[in-house]
Amino acid sequence: MRFFGLKTCDTCRKALKALDGHAVEVIDVRADGVSDDDRAAMVAAFGETVINKRSTTWRGLSEVEQSLDLDTLLKKHPTLLKRPVIDRDGVWLQGWTDDTKQALGVN
């Protein structure tokens, strides 16, 4: 299982704590970046919701930057990713919601 998040994100820390005991590869999107293939898979899986439009990063972007395609936005500003994103054997999950927890078998 691969976990895309930020080490400074409270939701990501909460999710990682709940996943303790599972084999998790943690990818910090700010420090480690997101590969082209992973970005493409996230955009394909989540579409517009891949971007957190409530973030301070989003609000700080110009209208021109906000109008860029999703892949370019995430490449330039990986912290725009709505977190966490989890890749479990090719199944992509986003956010730390009840549905995500149920899919992963955690409480």
Rank of each mutant, 00 (worst) to 15 (best):
G47K: 01
G90T: 09
A31Y: 08
I86K: 00
W58Q: 03
D32P: 01
N107R: 15
V29L: 02
T100I: 12
T8I: 13
A31S: 13
G21E: 15
V106T: 06
D99L: 12
L70G: 02
A15G: 07
F3T: 14
F4D: 08
G5I: 08
W92I: 00
V34D: 02
G105F: 09
T56D: 09
G90I: 04
D99Q: 14
W96Q: 08
D38Q: 08
N107F: 13
T11N: 12
V50F: 00
L19F: 11
D87K: 01
K17R: 14
D36A: 15
M1S: 02
K53E: 12
E65K: 10
H77W: 15
G5R: 00
V91H: 12
A23L: 14
K7G: 13
T56R: 07
D20F: 13
S55E: 05
S35Q: 10
V85T: 02
A103R: 08
K76H: 13
A31C: 07
T56Y: 11
S62D: 06
H22N: 13
T49K: 05
A44K: 12
G5E: 00
E63H: 12
K76P: 04
Q94N: 01
E63W: 13
N52P: 03
Q94T: 04
L81N: 05
V50K: 01
T49F: 07
K75Q: 13
T49Y: 00
P78L: 09
V91D: 13
D28C: 01
V91A: 14
T56Q: 11
A41D: 07
W58E: 09
I51A: 06
K101N: 05
A45E: 02
L104F: 02
D71E: 11
K14F: 11
I27M: 02
G5W: 00
A103W: 00
K7H: 14
D38A: 14
V29E: 00
R88I: 06
K7M: 08
P84G: 14
K7E: 12
V24D: 04
V34T: 14
F46L: 06
A15C: 10
S62L: 14
D38R: 12
A41R: 13
L68M: 07
M1W: 01
K82Y: 04
L81Y: 03
D99F: 07
V34F: 03
D32Y: 07
E63F: 10
R39I: 15
D28V: 01
K82D: 05
K53W: 03
L81G: 07
G21F: 14
L16A: 10
D87P: 00
V26W: 09
G60D: 13
